[in-house]
Nucleic acid binder design. Structure first.
Length: 246
DNA sequence: GCGACAG
DNA sequence: ATCTTGTCGC
C-alpha cells in the first residue's frame, strides 16, 4: 500500500490546473442544507460545481455523503452505504474510505469541478493523503481539509491566531519530500473574540491545485463556520443518512 | 524499544 | 470516527 501511495504522489499535480478561476469562487453566507429555499434542480450556469465529501459510520459500514454546491446553492446530494474491510491506520486512511467514497461519487449525476475532502492531501507521510489519492484516481481537482495535523511542521506557532491567518506546513523528517517543502497550510477559518480559542484547519493540495490556491479556495468556501460549506453540508448529510439506517 | 499518528 | 452532560456566550 505504501508503494502504491508513492506512485500516486508521483502522478499527482501539486500545481494549479483547474477548469475554473479560483478567484471567482465565493460563498456569501451559510448554504441551506437542502430544498428548504435555494436548492436548484441541477447545474444551471458555468460556475464551478464544488462537492463536499464526508463520512459517518455504523458498525463496520461506511456512510459516504456527497453534497454538490454551485453559486452558493446545493444542486445535488448523493450517498452510498458500504461494508468496510480495512481498519483505520494513520497514513492508510484512503484504503479504508476511498472505495466507499468512489461508490458515492458514482451516484452523483453532475460532474464536479473540485472535491473537498475531510482529511489530508499532500500533508501525508508519502504525500498521498485521501484527497490526493481519490483526486488522482478520478483525475479530479481536489483539496484536503483536516481538523488535526498528521505530519509536517507549522512554520510558526498556530495558537490563538485571528480568523484569516495562515502559515505554511513544511515537510520535516517524517515526510518523504525535501526538508522544508511547503506541503500545505494551517489556516484559521474562524476564531472567538475573547477567552476560548479555536484550532486552525490543516489544508493541503489533493490534486491539480497548489498549496496557496488550496488555502484561498478554503478561505472562499468558509461562510461563518469553522468548516468550509461543502464539508459542513456533507457532514450533516452523512449524519442524516446514518440516522435512517439505524 | 519509544513516540507519533487524518478519520 | 463514535460514545455523551453540562456549560459558556450571543
Amino acid at each position: 500500500m505504501e508503494a502504491l501511495q508513492r506512485e500516486i504522489a508521483d502522478a499527482a499535480a501539486f500545481a494549479d490546473d483547474l477548469p475554473f478561476d479560483p478567484d471567482a469562487v465565493a460563498v456569501d453566507g451559510p448554504v441551506e442544507a437542502d430544498a428548504s429555499g435555494n436548492e436548484r434542480l441541477g447545474p444551471s450556469s458555468d460556475a464551478p460545481v464544488i462537492v463536499g465529501v464526508d463520512q459517518a459510520f455504523l458498525d463496520e459500514r461506511a456512510v459516504s455523503a456527497i453534497v454538490a454546491v454551485q453559486d452558493g446553492a446545493v444542486i445535488e446530494r448523493a450517498h452510498a452505504v458500504t461494508q468496510l474491510s480495512i481498519p483505520y491506520i494513520p497514513g492508510l486512511l484512503a484504503f479504508r474510505e476511498g472505495g466507499p467514497i468512489l461508490a458515492a461519487i458514482e451516484e452523483l449525476s453532475v460532474e464536479p469541478d473540485l472535491a473537498v475532502f475531510d482529511g489530508s492531501g499532500r500533508i501525508h507521510f508519502r504525500q498521498a493523503g485521501i484527497a490526493t489519492h481519490v483526486g488522482v484516481v478520478l483525475d479530479l481537482p481536489s483539496v484536503g481539509v483536516a481538523k488535526t495535523l498528521l505530519c509536517g511542521e507549522p512554520a510558526e506557532p498556530v495558537d490563538g491566531r485571528p480568523a484569516g491567518w495562515s502559515t505554511p506546513i513544511e515537510a520535516g523528517p517524517d515526510v518523504e519530500a525535501p526538508e522544508g517543502t511547503t506541503i500545505g497550510h494551517a489556516y484559521q477559518s474562524r476564531q472567538w473574540d475573547r477567552s476560548q480559542s479555536i484550532n486552525p484547519l490543516y489544508v493541503s493540495p489533493g490534486h491539480r491545485v497548489s498549496a496557496a490556491t488550496t488555502r484561498d479556495l478554503v478561505d472562499a468556501l468558509c461562510a461563518g463556520y469553522k468548516l468550509p460549506e461543502p464539508t459542513r453540508l456533507a457532514d450533516r448529510y452523512a449524519d442524516e443518512v446514518k440516522a435512517e439506517y439505524e
